[in-house]
Design a protein around this nucleic acid. Sequence first.
DNA 1: ATGGTAGAAACTCTA
Length: 256
Amino acid sequence: MKIATWNVNSLRVRLPHLLDWLAAQAPDVACLQETKCEDANFPAEELRAAGYCTLHHGQRSYNGVAILARAEPRLACRGIPAFADEQSRVIAADIDGVRVVSVYCPNGQSPGSEKYAYKLRWFDALSGWLAAELAEHPRLAVLGDFNVAPEDRDVHDPAAWEGKIHVSEPERAALRGVMDVGFVDAFRLFEQAEKSFSWWDYRMGAFRRNMGLRIDLALLSPGLAKACRACTIDVAPRRLERPSDHAPVLCDLAIP
DNA sequence: ATGGTAGAAACTCTA
């Protein structure tokens, strides 16, 4: 099973890139973030024609998460159960015996802000829920834009980013709270090139200069981690005209 | 200390 995640930053704008990328990489499952569209405007027919069943949890203008799958996915939930949230950031489904969760974690704006406090509360709710999920689903994969760079090696210039959003210690502690539930960061199961990132700001030629962060992650339960054959970041779509500011992350699992 | 860019949508917010 090839499973992927991509923050597309507007599905309407990125649909041509997405269709090309699905054809090129042929993932069995793809988690999307920042679709920025309501369910009524979700391009389900175009994706069906490309061979994918879809589930979407959208809203107007902001956020929005989806799961695309070759096999028919069975919806588990939209949003984190028992966490009241007006923002569409989570969708979960069962696909071929794997519980797949697509997450768009809050950005947090800047440390000390109201959005930052929401981000930390949100992570707390996420780890609480995922602990219960993991207890019930040995094959659990949580993929998405976590908006936190786990370690300094995931940051192009750790000194410049120290204490900043995506990197601050409380955010990293919040992410560790998720990891400590029992997940493995699939990317770090393998030797990787230094300065491997998944997001580059649109401004200041950041991509050209590889001034990026690795904030898009594939977290695997132990049961899936032992089946993981590869995890890569596909930078090709970031080089296209009018790209998303994120690159897709692909995970190859040796399960039927 | 600030701005640079992109997207949605409505002249501002979010990232």
